[in-house]
Amino acid sequence: MKVLNKLLPNRPCFLDQPLSEDSSNKTIKGYNKFLESQESSGYKYQRRDNGNVFIIDMNNPEHGLVASLLQRRFNVPNANFDYNLPIVVDHFSPSGNGQLIAPDVTIYPNANHVQQPHIPYPGPPPGNKNGQPHARIVCEIGNEQSTKEWNDKCQLWMNQVYIRYVLGIKLHKKRNGKNNFGQYHRSMTAKLWQQGAGYQEWQFGTLIRKKQTPTACNSPNLPHYQINIPIAQVFWDPPLLPADEYIPTVPNSLATETAPVNFIIDLYRVQQLVLKEQNNV
């Protein structure tokens, strides 16, 4: 795919060949190859309906370290496994129309614990070209990305019924004032969308967004600032759809008395990581 650099007022843009009715599949395929080749470039891309490919966010230390922290938290149930992990934590997943979407973190079950596709890629059940299951949990971290774009991207994932939860974390711009440790105050928002149940929201930075009011997220292990996601939802695999009465369970290897029931994300830990890694000069 031929990609041309083009500057827009607020962000760089890569412009690909215009879509036409008979070339859309080819253009999507070209975009997928482009995305795969740029996977570790430090940019997040999004292809718009008109064929334009935009940089919607840029990686930086705090963005990358928040993604790493989330990956570690979602890997906790895998602690007793050296290989053939029951839960796969990755950062790439397909969308429903053959176009790849690159979230920051994806969590999906080991293929040994769910149904194999009845029909080769893209299924059903949905999966990727390597035969791996579709993500059940997706994490999106917005940094330079606008709040609206971040929110829209998170909501877009909920169109796929196999995605049970979307965790979005938005790091807003640094404030002018500093705390007692010489770190710039910063507002941060977390949202957790649950399939069929709306979303929850947390303001967990040092200041509430658009206000000078401090948040109550001021120490670790505060129940109101911990996000809990049932581990069993990674193994959501109904025999038939719709699946209103279906209840997922974890495989026997994760069903021990001491095994955790939920993934737990402590938002204070996220806050402190961001404050330490941001540029405080």
Results as ranks from 00 to 15, higher is better:
87 I>D: 06
72 R>E: 07
230 P>E: 01
272 Q>F: 01
47 R>Y: 08
31 Y>M: 03
74 F>P: 06
273 L>Q: 04
211 K>P: 01
162 Y>M: 09
178 K>A: 06
13 C>V: 15
228 N>T: 00
135 A>L: 08
136 R>S: 14
252 N>C: 00
223 P>S: 05
217 C>W: 04
28 I>K: 14
87 I>Q: 04
49 D>I: 05
220 P>D: 02
80 N>I: 02
266 D>I: 01
62 E>R: 07
23 S>K: 11
151 N>C: 03
214 P>C: 12
89 V>T: 08
60 N>P: 01
161 V>W: 01
143 N>S: 15
229 I>A: 05
72 R>N: 09
86 P>G: 00
109 P>K: 09
190 A>R: 08
83 Y>S: 14
244 D>C: 00
16 D>Y: 12
148 K>A: 13
49 D>H: 04
250 V>F: 06
2 K>S: 07
73 R>C: 07
67 A>S: 14
177 G>S: 15
99 Q>G: 15
50 N>Y: 09
90 D>E: 13
38 Q>T: 04
171 L>Y: 11
33 K>L: 13
4 L>T: 12
124 P>M: 05
62 E>Q: 08
254 L>F: 07
177 G>F: 11
176 N>G: 09
85 L>N: 06
250 V>L: 03
111 A>V: 12
223 P>A: 02
171 L>G: 05
209 R>S: 07
113 H>A: 08
241 L>T: 11
144 E>M: 07
64 G>A: 13
180 N>Q: 14
25 N>K: 10
204 F>T: 13
281 V>Y: 06
152 D>F: 11
184 Y>A: 01
82 D>H: 02
210 K>C: 10
94 P>S: 01
154 C>K: 08
196 G>C: 04
147 T>Q: 06
78 N>L: 03
24 S>G: 00
120 P>I: 05
37 S>M: 12
226 Q>C: 13
19 L>V: 15
160 Q>E: 14
229 I>E: 01
149 E>Q: 11
